[in-house]
Amino acid sequence: MSERRVIVVGYDAAELLDIACVTTTLVMANTQGAAPPYHVRMVTPGGHPIVCGTGLTLQAQEALERVTGPLDTLIVSGGIGHRAAAGNRLIVAHVRRLARESRRVASVCTGADVLASAGLLDGRRATTHWQWADALAARHPGVTVDPGPIFVRDGNTYTAAGVTSALDLTLSFVEDDHGAEVARKVAQHLVTYLQRPGNQAQMSMYTATPPSDNALVRQIVDHVTGNLDADLASSTLAAGAGVSERHLTRLFLRHLGQTPARFVRRARTEGAAHLLASTSLPMSAVANRCGFGTTETLRQAFVDRYGIPPSRYRSTASTTRSGPAVPARHPGGQEPSGDVSSRASRRA
């Protein structure tokens, strides 16, 4: 095989980032030693230029109808125009045809709607952007839609959650095709924060909408995320807030949909994931800084949250494998409040 032919399908009102994350990553892989190299083409119906959802016009390199196999990878982009694309018989028919001639088939974000309309996701597990997951499941009951992961593989078919998850998906292709070292070099050149494993959640508490307009809940959430190694028992949090433990639980259930204890466990686990990916701290230090106390407690929480042990997560997601440790920071991007960092440093 002299090259890996990759076709990215675009259409009017497609999301530019869905396309660019794929094409840039693969072309970058060529500069980092991918052999055989990727030959990437962006195709559209009729080969016409498309107006992306952002209003920018993108030139096609080829007409969708004229593409023939065999192909290495077929990728359908998402975007606000996905419903029209999924209802376009020409697009759906040619995606179905090309899928039969492709080693690997994928979609980004709402591009899953096009794959589903082509019958390519029937009987499969798939994901899409969390905002569109319910609609995809309702329109295509034969598809098992999982809104949680950032990308899902089922056989030779891959679906990514949306927008920048296209970067994670494409980096996973590079690693599968050319090894972890090439993928790591590409990630470094793209200055991506980390290469996330597919089962990482789309939404974390650090990227989700602020939990509520309740001042007391906000205050406790800020305290928890800024002081992961402190005493965060529900009774302690309630006492610090001047309310009963029962009232605190009611507030958390009403505004966050979970108990204080579950929120604390999730905060600590996501904080540990951040440190594992961005630092070279020993596992025991990560456990201490995030309030787990022991590495076994950390391991149990990690398996419950991510389905893999922390050591596996670090080997997959770490951005520090070829360099010195990155100074630890609070997962929300700010230094912990008070003297938490100094206490943690002394323990580590």
Score class of each variant (00 low, 15 high):
130 W>Y: 12
221 V>I: 12
42 M>P: 00
306 Y>C: 02
55 G>Y: 08
58 L>E: 04
274 H>P: 00
145 V>G: 05
102 S>N: 01
108 V>D: 02
43 V>M: 05
103 R>H: 11
246 R>Q: 13
118 A>E: 05
21 C>L: 10
155 G>D: 09
159 T>C: 11
155 G>P: 08
250 R>Y: 14
199 N>D: 11
92 V>L: 05
79 G>K: 00
131 Q>G: 11
156 N>F: 03
2 S>N: 14
252 F>A: 03
146 D>H: 03
277 A>S: 14
120 L>V: 01
100 R>D: 13
116 A>Q: 04
186 V>P: 05
312 R>Q: 14
250 R>H: 13
274 H>F: 15
21 C>S: 15
234 S>T: 15
98 L>H: 05
217 V>Y: 09
203 M>S: 10
291 G>T: 00
201 A>T: 03
116 A>L: 01
28 M>L: 14
340 V>T: 13
39 H>S: 15
231 D>A: 01
92 V>D: 08
241 A>N: 05
124 R>S: 04
270 E>D: 13
285 A>M: 00
119 G>R: 01
328 A>P: 14
242 G>K: 07
29 A>I: 04
330 H>W: 11
12 D>C: 01
56 L>P: 00
284 S>H: 10
297 T>P: 00
293 G>F: 03
86 A>E: 09
312 R>M: 13
47 G>E: 06
274 H>Q: 11
263 F>A: 02
42 M>V: 15
268 R>W: 01
285 A>K: 02
141 P>V: 07
215 A>Y: 06
241 A>L: 00
177 D>Q: 08
124 R>D: 00
38 Y>T: 04
115 L>R: 02
272 A>Q: 04
179 G>V: 05
86 A>L: 03
236 T>G: 06
310 P>M: 03
16 L>N: 00
335 E>I: 07
137 A>E: 05
128 T>K: 05
50 I>S: 06
